Simulated scan of single mutants.
Amino acid sequence: MEAINLNRLAYFAAVVDTGSFTKAADRLGITKTVVSQQVAKLEAELRTSLLVRTTRRVAPTEAGRLLHARCVMILREAEDAVEELAEANAEPTGLLRIAAPNDYGTSTIAPLAAKFARRFPACAVDLVLSDAKTDLLADQIDLSIRVGWLDDSSLQARRIGTFRQLLVAAPDIAATIATDEPEALASLPFIANGALREPLLWHFTKGDFDRRAVRMRPAVTINTSPAVLAATLVGGGLSVLPDFQAADPIAAGRLVHVLPAWTLPSGGIHAVYPAARFRPTKVTAFVAMLVEEIRGG
């Protein structure tokens, strides 16, 4: 069989959708004669009857219904491909609304938003920082950056990076720790992040087989990571912070990585989108910049 003329599939689908050659021609902006001829040629190529013609209406045969179902998917994919190509070749424009947690949003997303706005002046950025989970649809968010572990949802997500969790303390607190056993830390004051699902229970791992679960004693519970960092820096107690937040204070000697031979579970950095057939250029361009920033860092 010779290759099918895809235009004929579009003509045929329009006839089935409208139930009329005349209405299909009006939708397509061509003459009824052209539509009729092209559908007839399609039937000849396929060697089967696709439509039943009456004086009032045109209806698909069983073969026609099967072909129409596939045509809808083929034509939708073709439309999406054209739209995506047009988006890919276009400059980001309009308002890009991004949601991100306070800590990662402040350290990474806010500076990147400024760079993005400079690079693409036709696109403005509205960055919403909150440690509460954002409803993308209700709040009209184009892109959410989520740090940690994703719940199952109908949203589309892409893992764009990872981070380590570090047990840290101010130098004077760290100097009092004379053990390499995680369980010994349970009696020390701990600054808990109340935004976490399990802010006090931590799982330590050394090597392939040594695993310990330790429940900390909360001295202070705070619901944002920047505030947890501030309380830890002044010696309020031990705490667990992501590496992107703790790295600079550790390098400056203001914090100490406690029990460095033990590791805590790593987390993911995700770009989360509302479910859609394709994503606007402004979203894909920002995510590309963020991936470049993470890999460059």
Rank of each mutant, 00 (worst) to 15 (best):
A213K: 03
S266K: 10
G207N: 01
A227V: 12
R277H: 14
G194E: 06
A247F: 05
W262N: 12
F190M: 09
I250A: 08
H257E: 12
L238W: 10
P274C: 05
A276K: 10
A178S: 15
A195S: 15
L259S: 10
R212Y: 00
L259P: 08
L196P: 00
K206N: 12
F209W: 07
D243R: 10
L238Q: 01
T232I: 07
L264T: 05
F209A: 14
A213M: 06
A271M: 10
L233K: 02
A275C: 06
G253D: 11
R254A: 14
N193I: 04
F209S: 15
F190G: 11
T263E: 12
L200P: 09
T232V: 11
D243F: 02
A192P: 12
P242Q: 09
A195K: 00
A184Q: 13
G267P: 11
L200G: 10
P226S: 06
L238C: 12
L255V: 02
P218A: 14
F209Y: 08
R197W: 00
G253N: 03
R212C: 08
P199A: 08
T179K: 08
S266W: 01
W202T: 02
A247V: 12
V256D: 08
Y273R: 13
R212M: 05
A192W: 00
I191E: 01
K206G: 03
W262P: 13
A219Q: 13
T263N: 07
T263M: 06
V240R: 09
I269K: 04
P218I: 03
G236F: 00
P249A: 09
I222E: 15
A271Y: 07
L233H: 05
S225N: 07
F204Y: 13
L188Y: 12
L264Q: 06
L196N: 06
D180C: 09
L238H: 11
P265R: 03
P226G: 04
V214I: 11
V234C: 10
R212G: 02
E181K: 13
P189L: 09
A227R: 15
A275K: 12
H270V: 02
S225Q: 14
T205P: 01
P189E: 07
P274H: 03
S187N: 08
L188Q: 11
A186E: 09
P189R: 07
L196K: 11
W202I: 05
I269S: 07
A271T: 01
E183A: 15
L241E: 05
A227E: 13
L201F: 03
N223K: 10
L255Q: 04
T263K: 13
A219C: 07
F204N: 11
